[in-house]
Design a protein around this nucleic acid. Structure first.
Lengths: 262, 262
DNA sequence: GACAATTCTCGTAGGGTATACGAGAATTCG
DNA sequence: CGAATTCTCGTATACCCTACGAGAATTGTC
C-alpha cells in the first residue's frame, strides 16, 4: 500500500514496453525513424534483464530489496543506469507484474481444455493462487490500474471464455467473470499476504494468536458475543482458510450456474 | 503495501490500548501497582486525541499525511512526544483501524434487526462499504493480522449471527461467514482503492483507459482474444463495478442458501 | 585518423520516512 | 525543599526515488 504507482508519464511508452516482445498488429501510417542501431555506446543490459532481476530479488528478499539501488547493485551498475531501461520505479513494477501474469499456464484460444466450465475456472483459480504463492510480493502491489499488457489480457480472455460456455447474456457473462476474479484474486492476495507476514516476522499465525490469549481471558465479553461463543462451543472454528476459500468459490459458482437459461 | 506492520513488541500492551475504553471482565489474581495518578508531569494529550487526529488527517490528506511528524505538527507537539501515548506507528494504525471498525452501525445482540438473513448481510455490506468510502486510507492498510479490538470482534460477531439463522452446522456457518467477509471486504477494499487513485492522481478511471486507446489499435490481437472480442461486439462491457459487486454477492448468497437443510 | 553525432553511465543533491537515545522540564509527595 | 516520577522533544541514522548534467564509449563520415 504505497502512495506510489500514481501516474505514468507517457502511456504510449509504457504500452510499448509492456508489449515489447510482441509483434505489432500493423504499422501505423506515421513513418517513424525506425530506431536505427549503429551510433552510440552499447547498452550493457536490456529491459528483460532488469525485469527478471527485479522479480528474482523481490521473490528472494522481499519487495523492499527490489529498490532501484538494490537492483543496481545486484546488476553491477550504478543506480541511475537503470533509468536508461525503465522510465520509473512504477513502470518497472508494471513490467514485473505483467511478466508473472504472462507466466501463468492458461490454455489459449484453441488449446485443449476441460469441457466443464467449472473445471476451466478451477484452472484459473489454481494458476492464480500458485502465482501469488511463488511471488508473494504481488500482495504488496496495487493492481487497481493494472498493467495493460499481454499477461493481464490473457487472464481476462481465459476467464471470459470459460464463463461464455454457460450461455448467459454478454453483460451477465462479463459481470459473472468480474465477480469470479474479484473473489479468486482477492483470496489469493490474502493468502500470499498471510504467508508473507509469517515469513518477514518469523512468526506463524498460530503463534501470533497464541500471544493474544489474554483477549479471551481478560477482555472478551461473552454476553456481547453470543454467536462467536456458540460457534466456539460447537467446535466450529477448526476450518482452515483454504477450506473457506474452497467453500466460497463453490457456492459462488453454484449461484452463477443456477442462472443458466434452460 | 508496506513492509511495515510486521510486529508489535508487547501484545499485552497492545490489547490494553485497543480495549482501553472497555471494562475488564474480571481483575486477575496478580495485584498490579494500580497505576497511581499523582506524581509526574501532566500529559497534554491522551490516546484518543492521537487516534482521532490520525484518522482525520488520513481522511483529509491521505495516509502519508498521517506520519508521526505530520501528526505531531497537527497536534502542536514535538514528534517524539507521540511515543508517550503510542508505542509505534504500527500500533497507532491498529488503533485507527479498530476505531473506524467500531463506528460501523451494526445491530448488537438483542438489538432490532431484519428477520431475513440476506437483509442482515446487506447491512454488513452497506456499513463496510460506507466505512471504506469514508476512510479511503483503509485500502492502504493490511489487515491480515487485524487489530484484535472491540471493532473487529463486533463485525465478526454480527456476520456470524446473521449466518447462524440459516441452520447450517457450526463449521459450515463459520466457513460461510468467512467466505462472505472475504468477498465483501475485498470488494469494498477495491472500491476504495479505486477512488483513492482517482483522487490522488486527479485522473478518472475513464480518462486513464482513454489514454491507453493505442492498446486496441496497435497491440490488441483479435485472434488471441476471441472471447473479449465477442463480449465487445455484443456490448457486454457496459456494466459498472457496482453492478458486478451486487451480482456476485447475490450469487454467493444464493449458493450458500441452497445448502440450507430442508 | 579526426570529428560529430549519438547513446549509455552514473555521482551528487534534495526531500521524505520511523524511532533510539538521553537531557531537561513539570508536577506531587514526604 | 529534595526526591521521585512522568511527560517533552532535539538530534542523529539509515533508508527511499529521481532531476540534473558531465563524462565515457561507439559508429559513420570525411
Amino acid at each position: 500500500m504505497s502512495e506510489r504507482r500514481s501516474g505514468q508519464g507517457q502511456p504510449d511508452k509504457t504500452l510499448a514496453l509492456l508489449w515489447r516482445n510482441h509483434r505489432r498488429a500493423a504499422e501505423p501510417t506515421t513513418n517513424e525513424p525506425a530506431r536505427q542501431r549503429g551510433a552510440g555506446r552499447r547498452p550493457s543490459l536490456n529491459v528483460d534483464d532488469v525485469v527478471q532481476a527485479g522479480i528474482r530479488l523481490a521473490d528472494e528478499q522481499g519487495l523492499a530489496a527490489a529498490s532501484m539501488g538494490g537492483l543496481a547493485k545486484e546488476l553491477g551498475v550504478g543506480t541511475m543506469t537503470l533509468y536508461t531501461y525503465v522510465p520509473s520505479k512504477d513502470e518497472l513494477l508494471d513490467l514485473m507484474v505483467d511478466q508473472v501474469l504472462v507466466e501463468r499456464e492458461l490454455p489459449g484460444p484453441g488449446a485443449p481444455r476441460p469441457e466443464n466450465w467449472r473445471e476451466q475456472v478451477e484452472i484459473y483459480s489454481q494458476q492464480t493462487r500458485a502465482m501469488f504463492q511463488q511471488h508473494l510480493w504481488l500482495s504488496q502491489v496495487s493492481t487497481i490500474r493494472p498493467p495493460v499488457g499481454p499477461g493481464m489480457l490473457a487472464g481476462r480472455e481465459y476467464l471470459l471464455s470459460a464463463v461464455l460456455g454457460l450461455g448467459l447474456t454478454a453483460t451477465e457473462t462479463n459481470t459473472a467473470a468480474l465477480a469470479i476474479t474479484t473473489y479468486v484474486d482477492s483470496a489469493a492476495h490474502l493468502e500470499a499476504e498471510s504467508r508473507l507476514v509469517e515469513r518477514t516476522t518469523g512468526q506463524t499465525n498460530d503463534a501470533w494468536w497464541f500471544e493474544r490469549n489474554d483477549l479471551w481471558e481478560t477482555y472478551f465479553d461473552v454476553d456481547q458475543h453470543p454467536a462467536m461463543t456458540a460457534i466456539w462451543h460447537a467446535k466450529g472454528y477448526d476450518s482452515t482458510p483454504a477450506d473457506s476459500y474452497r467453500y466460497g468459490l463453490d457456492r459462488l459458482l453454484d449461484g452463477i450456474e443456477a442462472m443458466k437459461p434452460l
